[in-house]
C-alpha cells in the first residue's frame, strides 16, 4: 500500500518541492527549445510561475521521478513503442488478420497521481495493449489486447514505473 499516508506530512512537502523543481527544469528546457536564449529572463519567469502553480494545484500527492532513471525508462519506452508499431503493422498487412481481441481486467496497485497516469497512458503504446477504461475509483483498469500474451508487457511496465518513481515492488494481481 504505497502512497496516501497521512502521517508523513514533512516527507510529502519535501516531495512537492522536488516535484516543483523538476517541473521548472522541464518547462525551462521547453522554453529553450522554442525560443533559444532570446528573452531568457521571461522564460525563467514563466517556467517558475508554471512550476509553482502546477505544484500547488496538482491534485493528490506529487511523486518526484529519479532523473537518472528517466533515461532508462525512455529507452524502454522507445524500444516497446517500436515493437508495438511493428507488431500492429504486421497484423494489419497479413491477409488472414491475426488478431484476437479481448478485454482484460487488472487491478492497479500504483499510487494515484503521476505513476498511475503514466501507466494508463503508456499502456496504449505497448505492443498489443490499449487502456480501454478505468473504473470510477481508479483502482481497476480494463485493457483491450490484440493477442492474449500481450498482458505480460503490462507487468513489465508496472515494474519500470515503480523503479522510475522509487516505489516499492508489488505482487502483480491479474484477475
Amino acid at each position: 500500500m504505497a502512497g496516501s499516508d497521512v502521517g508523513k506530512q514533512s516527507i510529502s512537502n519535501r516531495q512537492r518541492m522536488v516535484w516543483i523543481g523538476q517541473t521548472f527544469v522541464v518547462l525551462a528546457l521547453v522554453w529553450l527549445a522554442l525560443n533559444g536564449l532570446d528573452g531568457w529572463w521571461f522564460g525563467l519567469l514563466a517556467a517558475s510561475v508554471g512550476a509553482v502553480v502546477g505544484g500547488l494545484l496538482a491534485s493528490g500527492q506529487p511523486h518526484p521521478w529519479r532523473p537518472h532513471r528517466l533515461a532508462g525508462f525512455a529507452l524502454f519506452f522507445l524500444v516497446e513503442s517500436f515493437k508495438g508499431g511493428i507488431d500492429v503493422a504486421w497484423r494489419a498487412f497479413r491477409p488472414d488478420l491475426p488478431i484476437n481481441p479481448e478485454f482484460h481486467r487488472c487491478r492497479l496497485d500504483l499510487p494515484e497521481g503521476q505513476p498511475r497516469t503514466l501507466m494508463v497512458s503508456v499502456i496504449s503504446l505497448l505492443p498489443g495493449t490499449l487502456s480501454a477504461d478505468l473504473s470510477d475509483d481508479g483502482r481497476e483498469l480494463i485493457i483491450h489486447t490484440l493477442m492474449p500474451e500481450a498482458m505480460d508487457s503490462v507487468w513489465r511496465l508496472d515494474a519500470r514505473i515503480r523503479h522510475l518513481f522509487s516505489l516499492p515492488a508489488a505482487e502483480a494481481a491479474d484477475e
Binding site: 491534485s59 493528490g60 494515484e112 478505468l134 470510477d136 475509483d137 481508479g138
Partner: peptide, 8 residues
C-alpha cells in the same frame, strides 16, 4: 474527462 478524478 473521466469523472470522479477529484474525489477522495
Amino acid at each position: 474527462l473521466p469523472a470522479g478524478k477529484d474525489e477522495q
